[in-house]
Computed example of a mutant assay.
Amino acid sequence: MNTVKLAYKPVGMLLGAASGMLAGAAFKQIWKATGHDEEAPGATDPERGWQEVLLAATLQGALFAVVKAAVDRTGATTVHRLTGTWPS
């Protein structure tokens, strides 16, 4: 395994954790800003309907995927610029 790829593994893990926290915070703000309750509904919340539960899950999943991809791509691009090797 390439040294750059091996060295990138812990960086990638830290970026993944950071992207999860960033996406979670962004989701909470977006959920509140769209006029919903402070907390998004869970799948088993008996007080919420199907539409609200599925809307929350869709928004949360899409946001997490976009933030993770953006953070991962930025990290890989930065490593490539610094080392000349893509850390795939």
Rank of each mutant, 00 (worst) to 15 (best):
M1E: 13
M1Q: 08
N2D: 03
N2S: 11
T3C: 14
T3W: 14
V4H: 03
K5P: 09
L6P: 10
A7R: 13
Y8W: 11
K9H: 10
V11M: 13
G12Y: 00
G12D: 00
G12A: 05
G12I: 00
M13R: 04
L14W: 08
L15G: 14
L15F: 01
L15V: 12
G16A: 00
G16Y: 02
A17K: 11
A18F: 11
A18Y: 13
G20V: 05
G20S: 07
L22M: 05
L22C: 15
G24M: 06
G24P: 09
A25V: 14
A25L: 11
A25W: 13
A26S: 11
A26E: 06
A26M: 11
A26W: 07
A26V: 07
Q29N: 15
W31D: 09
W31L: 08
K32G: 06
K32A: 08
K32Q: 09
G35H: 02
H36E: 03
H36C: 00
H36Y: 14
D37K: 10
E38D: 09
E38I: 09
E38L: 11
E38V: 15
E38W: 01
E39N: 12
A40D: 00
P41S: 03
P41H: 03
P41C: 02
G42W: 08
A43I: 14
A43H: 12
D45M: 00
D45F: 00
D45P: 00
P46M: 01
E47H: 04
E47Y: 02
R48N: 04
R48P: 09
R48C: 07
R48L: 02
R48Y: 04
G49T: 10
G49P: 08
W50A: 15
Q51S: 02
Q51G: 10
Q51D: 09
Q51V: 04
E52T: 12
V53W: 13
V53R: 14
L54F: 13
L55V: 02
L55K: 10
L55C: 03
A56E: 01
A56Q: 01
A57N: 07
A57T: 12
T58A: 10
L59C: 08
L59S: 11
L59V: 15
Q60C: 12
G61Y: 03
G61S: 04
G61M: 01
A62V: 15
A62R: 15
L63M: 04
L63E: 06
F64K: 08
F64I: 01
F64R: 10
F64A: 07
A65H: 04
A65Q: 03
A65K: 06
V67M: 07
V67S: 05
V67H: 04
V67F: 03
K68V: 12
A69Q: 09
A70L: 13
A70G: 08
A70R: 05
D72G: 14
R73W: 11
R73C: 15
R73L: 15
T74H: 14
G75W: 09
G75T: 05
G75F: 07
A76C: 04
A76S: 02
T77C: 12
T77F: 12
T78H: 07
V79K: 02
V79A: 06
R81M: 14
L82Y: 09
L82C: 00
L82K: 07
T83C: 10
G84N: 01
G84T: 08
T85A: 11
W86N: 13
S88F: 10
S88V: 11
